[in-house]
Design a protein around this nucleic acid. Structure first.
Length: 348
DNA sequence: AAAGCTCTCAACCGCAGTGGT
DNA sequence: GACCACTGCGGTTGAGAGCTT
């Protein structure tokens, strides 16, 4: 429509907070004449304001039926109900709350109720429980990052402790998977440790990219083709630094996860233990329609014991089975024990 | 006590909708 | 149907009050 703003032709009109004299003038005029033509009202009322500003002041502040003060519990629940129904239609919500203005409700929502809902774990937009609230899992990652950062992994303790390395890799794996599922909710972990030990890095890589899940010892032997290294029996005095968290994973291509890290003694011995949702060492993304289209032919890999999944729910079912499976039971039990706040202190 | 930070909310801005010509 | 005037709405801003360090 290309219309100029209402105040353009009222050059020199006052802006900003209203003073009591202005309020009095506006109130007196409207009480005597009523309101109708906001554009001409300021002149008639003797105000150096634009009509829009006068209307807003009257509607949001001076109107005699304005109700001030705290919102009652009943008003709050009405707002929540109506917001769930109408969204940010503040004027419509206000029409159900006598004496409250759209501006007041909007402000109250943005400053109080939004916060309250977030604290309750409810998404203030959808009014659904927040499914992306992964703070407990993030905490695990934070523990890991802190452990790496404060140097607890910077000693040979880790090297002499396969359990610790296993647990570390489990954490990494979970973190990476969560990043793929909800990349926005799971940020990259940045470690304060910047010096990357290429030896250990290659160990971790061979560990995690090997689809047959080698024992840590085997991985250590493969550490460097040109320079075989006794990783496990490395001297306690040798300065080993854990690679920054993200470096371990940056070596993988997008949407591609490594083969499963050894998860239990049983798996260790059998060399099995593929995670559901994997096609060999390829993880296919679950598209929005829930169906997956990766064939073993295209991936070139097909491992015994893995299922071909057609839908996202298949993958989830397999995950459930995997998590319930006694073969992985000990792995997850020890992992959960390790990360539980009530557990005895772990390797970090 | 003072400086810095956070929070609140009145007011502004731009745009969409509506009705009149 | 095109244009214009006006109203109403929702997002955003910024001054000042309150709180923390």
């Amino acid at each position: 429509m290309g219309r100029s703003p209402c105040c353009d032709q009222d050059k020199g009109v006052k802006k900003g907070p209203w003073v009591p004299e202005e309020d009095d003038k506006l109130t007196a005029y409207i009480e005597k004449n009523g309101y109708g033509n906001w554009r001409s009202l300021p002149k008639l009322a003797g105000l150096n304001r634009c009509g829009k500003s006068c209307r807003l002041r009257w509607m949001n502040y001076l109107r005699p039926d304005i109700r001030r003060g705290e919102f009652s519990d009943e008003e709050e629940s009405t707002i929540v109900r109506l917001h769930a129904l109408l969204g940010n239609k503040w004027s419509k919500i206000a029409s159900h709350l006598p004496g409250r203005t759209d501006n007041e409700i909007k402000n109250y929502w943005n400053t109080h109720m939004r916060k309250k809902m977030l604290q309750m774990g409810i998404d203030p937009i959808t009014h659904e429980p927040r499914t992306n609230d992964l703070s407990p899992i993030l905490d695990v990652s934070q523990i890991l990052a802190a452990a790496i950062g404060n140097g607890q992994f910077g000693s040979s303790n880790l090297i002499n402790n396969n359990i610790a390395l296993e647990d570390l890799l489990k954490l990494q794996l979970i973190h990476k998977m969560l990043q793929i599922i909800t990349p926005k909710a799971i940020p990259n972990i940045t470690s304060s440790t910047n010096s990357l030990n290429p030896k250990l890095d290659s160990v971790v890589n061979s560990f995690t990219t090997n689809s047959v899940n080698p024992k840590p010892e085997q991985a250590a032997i493969q550490l460097n083709a040109n320079e075989p290294h006794d990783f496990i029996n490395q001297s306690a005095n040798e300065d080993f630094m854990m690679p920054p968290f993200e470096n371990i994973w940056d070596s993988f291509e997008d949407n591609q996860l490594p083969g499963l890290v050894t998860v239990s003694q049983k798996n260790l011995n059998s060399g099995t233990g593929m995670m559901p949702g994997y096609y060999g060492d390829q993880l296919s993304e679950i598209p929005s329609n829930g169906s997956i289209s990766v064939s073993p032919e295209t991936s070139g890999l097909n491992y015994p014991g893995t299922t071909q999944h057609l839908t996202g729910s298949d993958v989830l079912e397999d995950w459930e089975k995997f998590l319930d499976d006694e073969t992985s039971d000990s792995c997850w039990k020890s992992f959960l024990d390790l990360t539980s706040p009530t557990s005895s202190p772990g390797p970090w």
